[in-house]
Amino acid sequence: MKKIEVLGTGCKKCTVTAEQITAIAKELGTDVEVSKVTDPQIIMQYQVMSTPAVAVNGQLAHSGGVPDRKKIEAILKA
């Protein structure tokens, strides 16, 4: 199972990102656990400066905006 964290201080784009990942994972039948991380300390540890960002199993996979479908699929399949 993949543990996916959506990093962001809580704006609408972060919610959208989490929803899209959940929806696409369901479509592809990937087993994921999606959570939203709003704690600035944790976001700092990932060295992310523009949100939303996405981390998979503790590894940063994307940052700087809502990922498009292609990117989400790549993240889920990796």
Partner: peptide, 16 residues
């Protein structure tokens, strides 16, 4: 270009 919802991560990124 930068959205105000990124100001905290940006602040910490610069500070650290």
């Amino acid at each position: 270009p930068f959205c105000s919802c990124s100001s905290i991560p940006l602040f910490l990124g610069f500070t650290s």
